[in-house]
């Protein structure tokens, strides 16, 4: 039956479209935005979104990455509020003197709950993480 055959093709194309949109979520945050979710989710807070661009306008990389000891790794610094209040990491500036203090919880803790630690729009995210996602989806499909 010709009509039936055609319907199958349409179905396949639509399934492909659904798969495409399901695997690739639409997030277009600013390049370099870092989501940090080491502890936040577990402790009932929204994950932190660190806007690199905003800080880059005000400070050179050296200030945070050499002087304050931030490693070049998302989530690699294991920052928690105790360290910040102690004047380490973000707390070196976010102390009410150089920048606003820690009472503005939800200006940092502003991410969508459940968002994993990542550097947004990084090539690593686009290539490695997404390929891993695709492979996982492929394996799931093969397992069915």
């Amino acid at each position: 039956m010709k009509v039936e055959k055609y319907l199958h093709i349409v179905c396949l194309a639509m399934a492909a479209a659904i798969g495409y949109f399901a695997v690739l979520p639409a997030a277009h945050a600013e390049y370099g935005d870092v989501v940090i979710n080491n502890y936040a989710d577990k402790r009932g807070m929204r994950p932190v979104v660190f806007p690199h661009w905003f800080h880059r306008v005000r400070f050179r990389c050296k200030v945070c990455h050499a002087d304050l000891g931030f490693k070049f790794k998302a989530g690699g610094n294991e920052i928690d509020m105790a360290k910040i209040i102690d004047g380490k990491f973000c707390g070196a500036c976010h102390n009410g003197e150089i920048a606003w203090s820690v009472e503005n919880c939800n200006m940092c803790h502003s991410g969508i709950p459940g968002t994993p630690t990542q550097i947004h729009e990084s090539t690593q995210q686009k290539l490695v993480d997404r390929v891993n996602e695709l492979n996982k989806a492929r394996q799931l499909e093969a397992g069915k």
Binding site: P25, A27, R46, N106, E121, T123, K126
Partner: peptide, 29 residues
Amino acid sequence: LLKKPKQLNLPPMEDGIHDPANEGTAMLQ
């Protein structure tokens, strides 16, 4: 996967990473 993004410099309320339900999000530049 390496194609360029369609839109650059989206405001936090629309960028898909910030929670629009969060009060602080609206205060971000």
